[in-house]
Design a protein around this nucleic acid. Structure first.
Length: 608
RNA sequence: GCCGGGGUAGCUCAGUGGCAGAGCAGCUGAUUCGUAAUCAGCAGGUCGUGGGUUCAACCCCCAUCCCCGGCUCCA
């Protein structure tokens, strides 16, 4: 597909500007295949959307309409909400505009003129945007009588848009400010060909199929119950088994890697949270205190203060450092009802938390160790691609500039020594220290924030945490807060979608379903299942009076990795040649019972 | 919290100001079967909850809880 926008020394320009470009620098044509090209393309589509809406709903006021990751949106201020039927009508109007193939033409006018022009049209949001612009002139783009304020560039003409689809309507605050008016936002997407659009829509279907809330019910993994409360998870036996397996793995690996496991209570005196600073900095996420014999207690939103108190329970020497405390600590945070989402955003969750107390000279090395450990754990769950971010000092912060500098450098060096690619997220650190965030990419290429490694200057100070140095003096250790999976709830939700519910053998709640062909095979089937269970394999039987096709279907829908079929043949051969079927439909074997057990154990141990 | 859409059987979903429906799942019976759904019967509901309008409300109105898509926020 051809190019439709120019890149001149990194600046994007309309194709029409070609003749005006002075003969300096390199000129490059961009197509849909480039990120910038895609953005321009979809931004043009959003103009066409605005045009269509203005034709159908002249009273609608225009706000903004940028390109986003997978498409575009446009915000409108309109007295009535858009219905699905409206979307269909708008889409039809857009098709007409595209068919006309009117050229996008650029024009520059003074700010004053622009204000006057949009003022006459009653476009108050555009006026607000113009007023905020720094330059004296602003640019406008026009196609077929529709003019919009826009920096540009655009595709040459509306006919350049090959495939467009409106997806949804949602409320959105003007300028993202919840104190300002809520506008109606229309989301859509555009592609360079009908086939690519179709592929994207199929991707959306796949996302829907993998929705962990849907699979969670179908596979009987977990539930959320109105009687109990929003954002509070019930782990059903199948989900609990998976969680237990994850926890066992997690604890085992932590012990191997030099962590000490601890447990801490779910509540503590409010004074503790005052001292930690949470009551000042984090109160909006905390629940109201409860009174116990005249003293206020608070349910915990974090585990850190407890870990600090364990550290402080005795005098620490520099020889002991680093001290690493790990805990699967369940915390409760207030989240506004509208943000709750299945397992991914809840009010009670278990962090795979750890706090490391280290000397300053140990930070870089320790962070490297944590990075190794994190990637190992993520790999185990089938995540091999990551986006890594280094977040630096925010506007509001505690600690000295010098400390921040040193800690940020330590994080950066650790990343570089590991040869890990990362992006800097300026000003996105926590108030108490810089951090590294790792987002994993799942099997559909979606990024999820899980792991975080945070340096903390604040708490050692507030709690007066010390160690005795080789000089016999008291020193302040640095605290590193880290989570690998983030929270078990969220991680589980991500895993469900990542595997589409088909968990690898080591995690699968039922590993083998033993299925009988007729009732006379039940006795032998039970013997086979028992032999598997004796070896620690999670085997279940289906002895129902149903056809084998039915039982295979049920087993496959439960996504049990293996089923074993027991009929006359297997019984007469006494299990020397089991008929084994994978959930994918592939057959394995025939294998003897012991051969099958060996195969299963090998697969479980390698966590494939 | 805000905007919009919802809540009907365990699940997925029809439905109407005048007797509450289907498929799947469940139970019972028949069938005894070789790699993704055997047949028949039965049972299953305070129509999210609380008020109101009406001779009559699952349906209309108000409030409330919860869910969904977003916004803001975030593990």
């Amino acid at each position: 597909m051809g190019v439709f926008v120019l890149s001149v020394e990194g600046r994007l320009l309309d194709m029409g500007a070609l003749k005006e470009i002075p003969a300096v620098g390199t000129v490059q044509g961009l197509a849909f295949s480039s990120t910038e090209g895609r953005e321009v393309y979809r931004h043009s589509a959003s103009h066409i959307l605005a045009h269509a809406v203005k034709e159908l709903f002249p009273q609608a006021k225009l706000a903004i309409g940028p390109a986003i990751e997978d498409g575009f949106y446009y915000d409108f201020d309109i007295d009535r909400p858009f219905s699905p039927e409206d979307l269909a009508a708008i889409e039809k109007k857009m098709a007409e505009i595209i068919k006309k193939n009117s050229p996008f033409t650029r024009r520059e006018i003074s700010k004053k003129e622009a204000l006057e022009m949009f003022g006459k049209m009653g476009e108050i949001y555009k006026m607000e945007l113009i007023e905020a612009l720094p330059d004296e002139t602003v640019s406008l783009y026009e196609e077929n009588g529709f003019t919009d304020l826009c920096r540009g560039p655009h595709v040459p003409g509306t006919g350049r848009i090959k495939a467009v689809k409106l997806l949804s309507v949602a409320g959105a605050y003007w300028r993202g400010d919840e104190k300002r008016k809520m506008l109606q936002r229309i989301y859509g997407t555009a592609f360079d060909s009908k086939e690519d659009l179709k592929k994207y829509l199929e991707f959306l279907e796949e996302v829907k199929k993998r929705d962990h809330r849907k699979l969670g019910r179908e596979l009987d993994l977990f539930s959320i119950n109105e009687e109990i409360g929003a954002g509070l998870i019930l782990w059903h036996p199948n989900g609990a088994l998976i969680r237990k397996t994850i926890e066992d793995f997690w604890r085992g690996e932590h012990l191997k890697t030099g962590y000490k496991l601890i447990f801490s209570p779910h509540m503590a005196k409010l004074d503790l949270w005052r001292r930690s600073g949470h009551w000042d900095f984090y109160r909006e996420n905390m629940y109201s205190p409860m009174e116990v014999e005249g003293v206020e207690y608070e349910i915990k939103p974090m585990n850190c203060p407890f870990h600090i108190e364990v550290y402080k329970s005795s005098l620490r020497s520099y020889r002991e450092l680093p001290i690493r405390y790990a805990e699967l600590g369940t915390v409760y945070r207030f989240e506004r009802s509208g943000v709750l989402h299945g397992l991914l955003r809840v009010r009670g969750f278990t962090q795979d938390d750890a706090h490391i107390f280290a000397r300053e000279d140990q930070i870089e090395d320790e962070v490297q160790r944590i990075l190794d450990f994190t990637l190992f754990v993520l790999n185990t769950f089938g995540f091999y691609n990551y986006d890594i971010y280094l977040s630096t000092r925010p506007e509001k912060y505690v600690g000295s500039d010098e400390n921040w500098e040193r800690a940020t450098n330590a994080l950066r060096l650790a990343l570089e020594k590991k040869g890990l690619k990362y992006a800097v997220d300026p000003g996105e650190g926590v108030f108490y220290g810089p951090k590294i965030d790792i987002k994993v990419k799942d099997s559909l290429g979606r990024a999820w924030q899980c792991s975080t490694i945070q340096v903390d200057f604040n708490n050692p100070e507030r709690f007066d945490v010390t160690y005795r140095g080789s000089d016999g003096q008291e020193h302040r250790p640095i605290m590193i807060h880290r989570a690998l999976m983030g929270s078990l709830e969220r991680f589980f939700g991500i895993l469900i979608e990542h595997y589409a519910g088909a968990f690898p053998l080591w995690l699968a709640p039922a590993q083998v379903d033993v299925l009988t062909i007729a009732e006379r095979h039940a006795e032998f089937a039970l013997k086979v299942a028992e032999a598997l269970r004796a070896e620690g394999i999670r085997a279940e039987t289906n002895l129902e009076n149903e056809k084998i096709n039915y039982k295979i279907r049920i087993s496959a829908m439960r996504k049990t990795p293996y089923s074993v079929i027991i009929g006359d043949k297997e019984v007469s051969e006494e299990g020397s040649a089991l008929s084994i079927r994978k959930r994918s439909g592939e057959t394995v074997g025939p294998l003897s019972i012991s051969g099958f057990i060996e195969l299963l154990k090998d697969e479980i141990n390698s966590r494939r």
